[in-house]
Design a protein around this nucleic acid. Sequence first.
DNA 1: GTTCCTGCAAAAGCTTTGCAGAAGA
DNA 2: TCTTCTGCAAAGCTTTTGCAGGAAC
Lengths: 140, 140
Amino acid sequence: MIARLEDMSNKLKKNKVRLSHQRLKALEYLYKNHGHPTVDQIYNDLRREVPTLSKTTVYNALTALCKARLVRVITIEDNETRYELITKSHGHFKCQLCGAIYDFNINIDSFATEDLDNFKVTDKDVYFKGVCPRCLENKK
Amino acid sequence: MIARLEDMSNKLKKNKVRLSHQRLKALEYLYKNHGHPTVDQIYNDLRREVPTLSKTTVYNALTALCKARLVRVITIEDNETRYELITKSHGHFKCQLCGAIYDFNINIDSFATEDLDNFKVTDKDVYFKGVCPRCLENKK
DNA sequence: GTTCCTGCAAAAGCTTTGCAGAAGA
DNA sequence: TCTTCTGCAAAGCTTTTGCAGGAAC
């Protein structure tokens, strides 16, 4: 984590993003939980550690971290913006019953897409939806 | 279009969704424009033909058509819900400069995803972002 | 005749903006 | 010191809800 933080710190400097206490906490939160939290989840959880935290700051922090390419937005559902640390490329699956989001390995670059030969592609997202094993089991 | 409408009509009946004038117009709109309009675009364009139309009805119509699986939601960006007619599987590319959305052919089922062997997958979305050829040209 | 849909107004939710004081570099 | 960030309140949007009258079946 410490070494990682130094990498992050460099990325932030390059993008002229200051590493404030709140932003560090947000990064730490994403790092520890390894999930895909919404702004509201981050806000409510971090408020325990940072009582003065405001939602505006959560928005600001996440936008700044996205700008520095440490964090990315997940838009798997239209009524919720989620964030995750940028790690290696993977797909996202959302269970329509329990709402849980799962990561799965997928080689997105293996897709044949000659249609996009003249496009500059900077982001690739794969979103699947359905029912997760746990909910399938519960329905029986 | 006529034959297609009959197919659609059957799908609607199966799902107990009434084919009101407004819903028919919304379907017709998606069919004619073959795009990925937002609620606002549909509302503003259809208002010319259906002056009494309300936005609530546009929401209602699209939700109903989604339920009958004639239409699907595109959530490529977090601040806009877009809709399209369900046709054959394809990917979506959004240009970050001009905002245009392009379809591209992609065989989503060709992905190897043993991680999801125990999942029931009902929806698959592939979203790419970047810069389209036209905008790349304009930047030169 | 029933049931479901429309459209208005109001409410609810999420995100952004403006700004004074505080913190980071 | 200078610049940027925080946190509050307010504003701006999008989407949902409640409901009376109307349309579909």
